[in-house]
Design a binder for these strands. Structure first.
Length: 359
DNA sequence: GGAAGTTGCGTGTTGAATTT
DNA sequence: AAATTCAACACGCAACTTCC
């Protein structure tokens, strides 16, 4: 049991905000009491749940249902929950902030599991944020913002809608698709719909007259812009899209899609970018080093670190070369160790759950 | 189970707007 | 005026869904 002895806990409020929580009366017996203590100490508003590091599962964060799991010096993580009121944090200087990082830090989801993010994994993939509950419309260029401001006040006054000039349209499409790309390269129709609804909610002067929801045209434009963006990125050699390219795989250039299976819906074929400052040669050296490390005992930490580092190289091999299991086993023996398999299974479960929430 | 219809994606192209 | 950019369109195809 938690006992009545004083306790100290580390509370991770957000990615770059961790705080020490002193509990002179010890760890409370109920989770609700503890939540209130954390809320008071950190100045939190809105709903959140707590997660603790579970020793049985290699210190991954697990939802806290019983304070008996805790001891002094344990680490707690705050997971903001979707709420009618937005989640806010009292910063150390007393001001309140609605921290954007929170939405990316916590899952912001109603799932009971967390996304496994081993240390340093954020450097492996450039896209580590889940699709937001409410899509944030980015700031456009000064020109566009000025016109929108005027347009919106005119719309308020007499319902006049703004006629969007081509330059302004380009600016809106580009900025929004850049924002979309932070989360997904293949958003669903529902995603596009959310984005265009968020756009006309923020800028009502952009609503369209003939459209059933006022933004169908924008939805179509975003779809096309994302398609054009993918083509553009593929042209620049972005491996994520080269892997999905039909033309590079087709023998018959006249009909590039002929006899070439497209990836199934939801299949990412994702190849993450190589971390900045790291070359493929470096990664190959790391792979060779890994071959030696797996032969040593009690070496899980080093292996995990090297496997994380070489994730991009491994994905490239799998997607581009489609090696057999045997080849993969020879080149990446650590991949078949229990420590590496478990996170993969967890991740797959996450992906499946995510697909269900999308559909 | 299979035919028919729908959706989503990549590709190539067009034409208007913009830049050089 | 020529070159470039980019939104938008048409098309072919595979994946997927619906209907019988």
């Amino acid at each position: 049991m938690s006992g009545r002895r004083s306790a100290k806990l580390l509370v991770i409020v957000s990615e770059d905000d961790s705080r020490k929580l002193l509990l002179p009366d010890g760890i409370p017996e109920s989770v609700d009491e503890l939540v209130e203590k954390v809320r008071e100490a950190c100045g939190l508003k809105g709903k959140f749940r707590l997660q603790y590091q579970d020793k049985d599962f290699g210190d991954v964060f697990v939802n806290l249902t019983n304070t008996g799991e805790l001891q002094s010096l344990c680490t707690l993580k705050i997971i903001p929950l979707p709420d009618e009121e937005s989640f806010t944090v009292q910063t150390n200087d007393g001001t309140q902030s609605n921290d954007d990082t929170l939405s990316s830090f916590g899952s912001g989801d109603t799932d009971d599991t967390i996304i496994l993010s081993p240390p340093g994994s954020e450097t492996v993939s450039t896209r580590n944020q889940q699709w937001p509950k409410e899509f944030n419309i980015p700031r456009f260029s000064y020109d566009t913002e000025l016109q929108l401001e005027r347009g919106n006040s005119l719309f308020k006054a007499n319902g006049t809608r703004l006629t969007v000039a081509p330059k302004m349209k380009s600016d809106i499409l580009e900025k929004i698709c850049d924002e979309i790309y932070k989360y997904k390269s293949y958003p669903s129709s529902a995603n596009f719909c959310e984005v265009s609804e968020a756009l006309i909610k923020k800028h009502p002067c952009l609503a369209e007259k003939g459209s059933f929801n006022g933004c169908y045209g924008w939805t179509q434009r975003f779809k096309m812009k994302m398609g054009n963006l993918r083509t553009q990125l593929k042209g620049l050699g972005c491996p994520e899209f080269l892997a999905n390219s039909l033309k590079t795989k087709a023998s018959d250039n006249a009909f590039p899609a002929k006899n070439v299976k497209r990836p199934k819906r939801g299949e990412a074929n994702h190849i993450p970018s190589v971390p900045a400052g790291v070359s493929s040669e470096n990664l190959e050296t790391e792979r060779l080093a890994l071959l030696k490390e797996v032969k040593k005992r009690n070496n899980a930490c080093t292996i995990r670190e090297k496997m994380t580092k070489t994730f991009a190289l491994r994905r490239r091999e799998v997607v581009e070369n489609q090696p057999s299991v045997q080849e993969l086993q020879e080149r990446w023996p650590a991949l078949f160790q229990q420590e590496e398999v478990e996170p993969v299974i967890s991740f797959k479960v996450q992906v499946i759950k995510h697909e269900f929430t999308v559909v």
